[in-house]
Design a protein around this nucleic acid. Structure first.
Lengths: 336, 336
DNA sequence: TTGTAGGCGTTATCAG
DNA sequence: CTGATAACGCCTACAA
């Protein structure tokens, strides 16, 4: 491994001058800088982040916390896309990405300890059980934090506009004549609450009355659960003409259940998803859904986190709401 | 931030003893060790990986190289799952995970420079353009490397058994009476070559003669391309009775194209995917496909990389082939 | 413009 | 069993 000291010896300058030259300091003559850089390059010099971090207490490394549990984290298309764009933008801004876990060497530690151990300059919290005390601890640890789809006290947060998203969907199916609209929602998280709020407000505004039994709790990303709930909804004395699913994958379960009941989408029942994953746009019939702007969410997360890091104590936590886009597909029939 | 020095002062022992106690060295009395650990814990001591790495030249950090290009990397379900299990197993083995990029601070650098800069103990190469000179450089940089679905000279490699996978699929459709079997394969990568080999060998072994126009090059993860090629195949004077697709997503495109031609799966044409992604098992009809064992691939990658790191110069690169599993679905009809 | 020296937090060697 | 002490590679006052 070639170090600054070796470059110094080789070039005839001192380590201080070499360090400055390599970091583009202004108090080194242009020629010396050029010479030193040439020598360094010749020798195959690469800086050492550990030494640099030790000295500067900046790692230029973001930690990301993704849940590993079933149906979540990396294997969740929505979050994969966010991570992808977060990563790209972070790298542009000069930060690398590492995962936070609750292990260190052999033993388990808290997320906060892990993040401190690795000197992460900032942390992205996404796709986790936000009520987990370990997560809360991290959020209030003093390390700059940005959360995706959740609001922590004093942390930046990037939210998908779930309220407006649901309103858009409701308006859309309403405009196609639907009044008996059911909503299978996911587990009662903050996101889900927003969606329910959006759903109810828009119904209220449009003056349609949704019977209580039309709003049922299902589970995200579970075709099975959605299938079963779909059966139950269709067995009601007065079944809905349109069902809103918690996400696109769940819709698949609903679709299958309907087919098995001899009902077809959208001829007999209309249906709507949420997320706008790739799949939703290649299946037949193409799914009417709300595309969440994962690209923007990841990008803004990175930018916000970089700001939080760089502004330090003077950073004022921002809440950024990212609008989605209605993707009108072929699963909602015009009726009435 | 509380350091060893502070713990030393507080506990009355020297930094040397504290360091040893904290690292479980044998030459510290049990009581002192316990006392020191208690004090450290009280003070909220967390070690500093940068200092440790600087001193030991070990970071306990794996770098992973994932391509960002379209249809690849993180947003590719297959690789997401591998990454997920690689991450989990690595953490169990005491390593954290970071991404390798070609940027550093503002400027672009080679993957190798990046990996050196961050002191990664080892590197996982997956989902990239393996012919990229920058990737080749990394593979031969001397840093321990394990590659997924590719074989580099002198690097560990974890391969999905693509040859056997194709043989299994061919056998399966053959056993259901199919003889006119078409194969739309992906871009000509090493993986693809194996699949073609498996396909051809098995056909040969079963004594079925596949006309040249039945084997066509498409593109991975492109429903559109597969749809178009499906149309072309079905327009042949003597069209196939069964089509093998490069992957499950591509099958969706084929399925749609067939439907639009008034043909239904599997009544009129049989079809088969590859990968066994979640989607494939929730759609109707359930897809006959070959599930790649991403869980095992990620796990073994981590274990192999840890070995490569720990055995150092004496490590003998292993090639580990992971078998997949045939998932018989409902998309292949018994005929003949 | 360049160089000297000290120290970031940790581990490792060697002496007590 | 415990403790000085010297690095690891780098940055940064401060001095020259």
């Amino acid at each position: 491994m070639v170090t600054i000291k070796m470059v110094a010896k080789q070039s005839g300058y001192s380590v201080a001058t070499v360090s400055k030259a390599l970091n583009g300091a202004s108090d080194v003559s242009a020629e010396t800088a050029a010479l030193i850089r040439a020598v360094a390059s010749d020798m195959g010099y690469t800086p050492n982040s550990a030494a640099r971090a030790l000295k500067t207490t900046r790692s230029y490394n973001f930690g990301v916390l993704f849940e590993d549990a079933t149906n979540s984290g990396l294997t969740h298309e929505f979050f994969s896309y966010i991570l992808q764009s977060f990563k790209r933008r972070s790298e542009e801004l000069g930060y690398d990405i590492s995962f936070i876990s609750n292990r260190l060497g052999g033993r388990s530690v808290s997320y906060t300890e892990h993040a401190r151990y690795r000197n992460y300059d900032g942390v992205l919290i996404a796709s986790v059980e936000f009520r987990d005390p370990a997560v809360l601890e991290l959020a209030s640890s003093g390390i700059p934090v940005v959360a995706v789809d959740y609001s922590f006290h004093r942390c930046g947060s990037i939210l998908s506009d779930n309220i407006q998203g649901m309103r858009d969907l409701v308006s859309h199916v309403y405009s196609l004549g639907h009044r008996r609209i059911a909503f299978i929602h996911g587990e009662l998280t903050a996101v889900t609450r927003d969606r329910i709020t959006g759903f109810q407000r828009q119904c209220l505004e449009l003056g349609i009355d949704i019977p209580k039994e039309y709003i049922v709790e299902g589970r995200y990303h579970s075709p099975d659960v959605s299938g079963e709930l779909t059966r139950q909804l269709m067995a009601l004395p007065n079944p809905p003409t349109c069902i809103l699913y918690p996400d696109d994958i769940s819709y698949i379960g609903g679709f299958n259940a309907l087919e098995r009941m001899g009902l077809s989408v959208p001829a007999d029942v209309s249906a709507v998803g949420y997320d706008g994953v790739n799949l939703s746009q290649v299946i037949t019939p193409r799914l009417t859904t709300l595309r969440q702007d994962t690209e923007a969410m990841g990008e803004r997360s990175a930018e916000e986190l970089a700001r939080a890091v760089e502004e330090g104590i003077s950073y004022v936590p921002q809440t950024i709401v990212i609008p989605g886009t209605l993707l009108p597909g072929e699963t909602v029939k015009r009726i009435g």
